[in-house]
C-alpha cells in the first residue's frame, strides 16, 4: 500500500528535471531546427524540385576542390593547434595551481576579445605595410612575401582563435594523469624521455583526440576569418556558401552545400562517438 503511494508521489517528481529543459528545447526548435529544416527543404526545391543542386555539386570539380581545401585547412589548423597547444598544456599541468590558473587566464583571455577584432588585428600585423612584412624586408627578404590573403594568414588566425579549445581539452586530461605513474615508470628504469614516450604521451592521447576533433569540426564551418584573411582562390565551404547567397542569390545551391557540410561534420562526430564516446568531447 505504502509503496504504491510512494510511486504515485515519485512520478511527478521524476518529470520535473525535464521541464527545466523546456525553454531551451523550445528556443532551439524555433530558431535552429525549423530554419535547418527550411534549408534542407530549399536544397531540394530551389529553383525546382529534385536533387539537381546535389547533382551540380558532384558534376563541377570546383565544389569538390573547395571541400577538399576546407578539410585540408581544418586538418592543418587542428595539427598546428596540437603542436602549439601540447607544450603549453603540459607546462600548465606541471605547474603549481597558481601558475596554472594564470596561464589558463592568458589562454582564455583571447576568448574575451571579439572575434572580429582579433581577425582585423591579424590583417594589421600581416598586411603589406605591417610590422611582420617590414621585419622580413629588413632581414633581407626582398621583395617581402605577401602574407595576407593566403592560406597561411587564415590558418594562423584560425589557430589563434581555436587554440584555447585545444589547450583546455589537453589540460583537463593531463591534469588527471596520476603523477605516481610517472614515478613508477622512473623507478622501473625509464629515462625522462621514455617516461614521456611510454607513459605520458599515451595517457594524454584522449586529450589530443578530443582537442583535435573539436578544433577540426569548428574549423570546417568557419566563415569570418577565412573570408577576411584567406586567399580568394582557396575558399573554404562556408565562404563559398556566403558567395552563392550574396552574389548569385542561389539559395538552392547554397543550401545543398550547407547540407553536405552538415553531413560531413556529423560523420566526423559519429566516427568519434563510435570510437571514444561523445560524452568525453567536452572533458
Amino acid at each position: 500500500m505504502l509503496s504504491v503511494l510512494n510511486r504515485g508521489a515519485a512520478a511527478p517528481g521524476a518529470l520535473k528535471p525535464w521541464l527545466l529543459l523546456l525553454p531551451l528545447v523550445l528556443f532551439l526548435c524555433a530558431f535552429f531546427l525549423v530554419p535547418l529544416g527550411q534549408v534542407a527543404l530549399m536544397s531540394v526545391t530551389e529553383p525546382e524540385f529534385g536533387l539537381g543542386n546535389y547533382a551540380h555539386l558532384t558534376s563541377d570539380s570546383l565544389y569538390l576542390q573547395v571541400f577538399i581545401n576546407t578539410f585540408l585547412t581544418a586538418l592543418g589548423v587542428a595539427l598546428c593547434c596540437l603542436l602549439l597547444g601540447y607544450p603549453l598544456a603540459y607546462l600548465m599541468a606541471q605547474s603549481s595551481p597558481r601558475v596554472a590558473a594564470l596561464l589558463m587566464l592568458l589562454v582564455t583571455m583571447s576568448f574575451w576579445t571579439s572575434f572580429l577584432v582579433r581577425t582585423y588585428a591579424w590583417m594589421v600585423l600581416l598586411g603589406n605595410n605591417g610590422p611582420i612584412t617590414a621585419a622580413l624586408a629588413f632581414l633581407g627578404w626582398n621583395p617581402p612575401p605577401h602574407l595576407l590573403f593566403t592560406r597561411l594568414s587564415s590558418t594562423l588566425a584560425m589557430v589563434h582563435i581555436l587554440i584555447p579549445y585545444m589547450v583546455m581539452s589537453l589540460y583537463s586530461v593531463m591534469k588527471r594523469i596520476d603523477p605516481a605513474l610517472l614515478r613508477a615508470a622512473e623507478s622501473l628504469g625509464a629515462r625522462p624521455w621514455s617516461v614521456f614516450r611510454q607513459v605520458y604521451l599515451p595517457l594524454s592521447a584522449p586529450g589530443m583526440v578530443n582537442g583535435a576533433t573539436l578544433v577540426f569540426m569548428i574549423c570546417l564551418g568557419f566563415y569570418v576569418t577565412p573570408v577576411l584573411l584567406g586567399s580568394p582562390q582557396e575558399q573554404m565551404v562556408a565562404g563559398l556558401i556566403g558567395t552563392q547567397i550574396e552574389e548569385f542569390l542561389d539559395f538552392g545551391q547554397a543550401s545543398a552545400m550547407a547540407m553536405v557540410l552538415l553531413a560531413s561534420t556529423m560523420i566526423v562526430l559519429t566516427v568519434y562517438h563510435r570510437r571514444f564516446g561523445l560524452d568525453r568531447l567536452w572533458g
Binding site: 596520476d178 614515478r183 613508477a184 622512473e186 623507478s187 611510454q198 595517457l203
Partner: peptide, 20 residues
C-alpha cells in the same frame, strides 16, 4: 644517482599500474 638508475623496485600505495 637519478631514480631510473638506482635499480630499486617500488610498489606504490595505489599500485600505479599503467592503465594503457
Amino acid at each position: 644517482i637519478p631514480p631510473h638508475a638506482r635499480n630499486i623496485g617500488i610498489v606504490f600505495q595505489n599500485y600505479a599500474l599503467f592503465p594503457h
